[in-house]
């Protein structure tokens, strides 16, 4: 961290201070500011894969969706029968207490962060052997297939989608909900930025660039390209996955 220049330091502190006060200054735009943070994270991590590694993917949305459904399912399924919840109108029958809500969300977050990242690692070996257009179209197919299949599974709401648990009613302050999600996504943004910045300063980024510029030569130089490609893909996936939780909480999920 000592390498950060003074000019950058001023910029970063200014941005952090702005970020901390933004929801209070522009209190009407809290939801938009939350999405701003999330979209920045998505763009940053897509760049890791598409820009630095040269593997253009349209399928990261698969991890996003997987995390979304997993987190919501865990949050509901821990306390109530999932199938009844997702029946039309079912969500009105059950109410989370404040403790249940945050407990469920914490566990859901953990599951949603781990499982899709493992999935990314598992399918990475098969998919990352493709190159160029083939990789792009394969991930696009994967993303669409994931959406279509999710739209067919009854227990997670099928075509009508999944209504996420409402924010606990005991917290009466209307502002609290928006602020809670804003700061969660802001912390995520900072964490993701530090993570990406750390990667950019490491050998790992140079290896990703080598793979982008000429994969065959990179391999000839002794880089185990597949290993690094999968790692890069998982790095990208984990950020996408953690993003979704914040996004889904203000929304009704549908495929």
């Amino acid at each position: 961290m000592s390498k950060i220049k003074q000019k950058d330091l001023i910029l970063y502190s200014a941005l952090i201070i702005f970020g901390l006060f933004a929801p209070f200054i522009f209190s009407a735009y809290k939801v938009q500011l939350t999405y701003l943070c999330i979209l920045i994270v998505l763009a940053m991590t897509w760049n890791l894969q598409g820009g630095e590694m040269g593997y253009n993917t349209f399928g990261n949305i698969l991890f996003y969706g997987l995390g979304m459904y997993l987190c919501a399912s865990v949050q509901v399924g821990m306390f109530f029968p999932l199938a009844e919840w997702t029946e039309s109108g079912g969500e009105k029958t059950f109410v989370h207490t404040t403790a249940q809500y945050f407990q469920g969300m914490g566990v859901g977050l953990l599951v949603a962060a781990i499982v899709p990242t493992l999935v990314a690692g598992a399918i990475g070996y098969a998919i990352l052997g493709l190159r160029g257009h083939y990789f792009a179209i394969c991930t696009l197919g994967l993303g669409i297939a994931g959406g279509e299949i999710a739209g067919g599974i009854e227990i997670i709401g099928a075509g009508q989608g999944f209504t996420t648990p409402p924010f606990p009613a005991e917290i009466v302050d209307n502002e609290a909900r928006g602020e809670f999600f804003y700061f969660l996504s802001f912390v995520l943004l900072i964490a993701a930025f530090v993570f990406v910045k750390y990667i950019y300063g490491s050998r790992f980024k140079l290896i990703l660039n080598a793979i982008r510029d000429n994969e065959d030569k990179a391999e000839a130089m002794g880089i185990q390209t597949m290993k690094y490609k999968i790692t890069g893909w998982m790095c990208s996936a984990i950020c996408w996955v953690t993003c979704n939780l914040l996004y889904r909480d203000s929304f009704h999920i549908s495929f």
């Binding site: 083939y134 394969c138 297939a145 299949i149 739209g151």
Partner: peptide, 12 residues
């Protein structure tokens, strides 16, 4: 969904 999964399987 089956059609798109088939695409993925064929490519893989």
């Amino acid at each position: 969904g089956a059609v798109f999964l088939l695409l993925v399987f064929i490519l893989v």
